[in-house]
Design a protein around this nucleic acid. Structure first.
Lengths: 235, 235
DNA sequence: GGAGTTAAGCTGTATATACAGCCCACGAGG
DNA sequence: CCTCGTGGGCTGTATATACAGCTTAACTCC
């Protein structure tokens, strides 16, 4: 086994990261300029620039044109979490994913959702699907879909393709907005997730846009005791 | 007002993004190679390379050395969410943040937490703080801190600095792990958040590492009806 | 016809060079 | 003493060039 040759810009990044990790450089402290790195580490300025630029993008550093590069103030930095496709997540755990389609219909949707989807007549496709992991219900997915964006929504077999997958294939995704909150389930959701009404539920609201239009609004309900979101952030 | 001159690599990114947004390029489709972009858009290869590299980093494209560049399969892409500092978030809304320190002590902590923090004797600092937004309780923060990482923890005034801020200042943060879930509150948390026991709570568990050591483990409890996490993802 | 070789095309990295624009400190001149 | 200008240092962007390593397809030779 040969030692893996690391790219030079990675070495430059680690040089800076090491001084931050060790505590030598605290938030707000000044980092070497590109030219100083060129002289100290015998690299080209483009290499130093790439290293620093990538550290800015990951939130470790902040740069002020004309002034210098500084360790970012992590107090206000946001730590990322990730929301993944439910079917992919279940399959990634090596388990079996199964979807039960409870409803698939064209309805006049609530005024607030019609407004959100930009529907003048309020008519939208509506689906209610329960996603199972090894036969245990994990997620209830209630979705309203803009018929102008996905006119064939009613003819899709959602036991084979998730609505999210279908929408992405038929209309290129442009923007996704998520809201996560804890709530008590309504009787329908509780029964579909096989929960008591007192058991809390983790709700993810997902709104998607495609080609400048609101494409769909989904409520993803999960049993609090069986579902969690995880995220790791490393500098 | 002059029109803002966009960098060339942004124009190249938009050229590619436009073809994806319009639906012309679907997931898996091949994108122009760097040399094709050089010829088509009259830019240098480094500029095309930067544009494509940044689109890879944002998850829009995937590159295969020796083969080509392709539109990423968004079905498996993860959408980012962000967890922010509570005091910064409240102040960002223009509201008043106030912290009530309920406990600040050295305790023998539960075995599982001792193991998590790598404490052989199980002795850790323990604090319980309620964060208020305009005098309404928003978050209960229970935290166990490794005394070897932050020996002065007990002498800090947490009505002026949040524990998270203090820990970041005293020991450079290296890694943060978050777990988000919905749960029913225990009586202590319910009373501190002024909730009924039946009202669900959004719990964020945060574990931090500093200089190769586990530094702290925190449980952040929020009233489900007053707190939510938000995230936007755009291509 | 099949197997092995070769060439073209691709990404990934690295360098030297150039110019624009911003910031700050220093110094000259009022 | 205060103000204005200037120069040095910094980031940001852009180009031309080079080489390594990988993949794929075509082509040659058996």
């Amino acid at each position: 086994m040969n030692a893996v040759v690391k790219p030079l810009y990675e070495l430059v990044k680690n040089h800076v990261l090491g001084r931050i990790r060790s505590g030598e450089l605290k938030p707000g402290a000044r980092v070497e300029s590109e030219y100083e790195l060129v002289r100290a580490l015998k690299v080209s300025r483009m290499t130093a620039n790439r290293a620093l630029r990538e550290l800015v993008q990951s939130g470790v550093l902040a740069r002020v044109p004309g002034s210098g590069t500084f360790v970012a103030d992590l107090r206000s930095a946001a730590h990322p979490l990730q929301i993944r496709n439910i079917a992919a997540e279940i399959q990634g755990r090596g388990h079996v994913h199964r979807a039960r389609v409870m409803l698939k219909e064209l309805v006049k949707c609530p005024a607030e959702i019609a407004r959100l989807l930009g529907l003048s007549d309020g008519l939208a496709f509506h689906s209610l699907i329960v996603h199972h992991e090894n036969e245990a219900p994990l997620q209830v997915e209630e979705r309203f879909v803009n018929p102008f964006v996905a006119p064939d929504y009613m003819s899709v077999d959602f036991t084979r393709t998730t609505p999210h997958e279908y929408l992405m294939a038929v209309a290129p995704l442009e923007r996704v907005e998520h809201v996560v909150r804890a709530m008590a389930p309504n009787p329908t959701v509780a029964s579909l997730l096989q929960l008591e009404l007192s058991e809390p539920v983790l709700l993810i609201e997902r709104t998607t846009w495609s080609q400048e239009l609101p494409a769909s609004f989904a409520c993803l309900y999960h049993a609090g005791s069986r579902f969690e979101l995880r995220g790791v952030f490393s500098i």
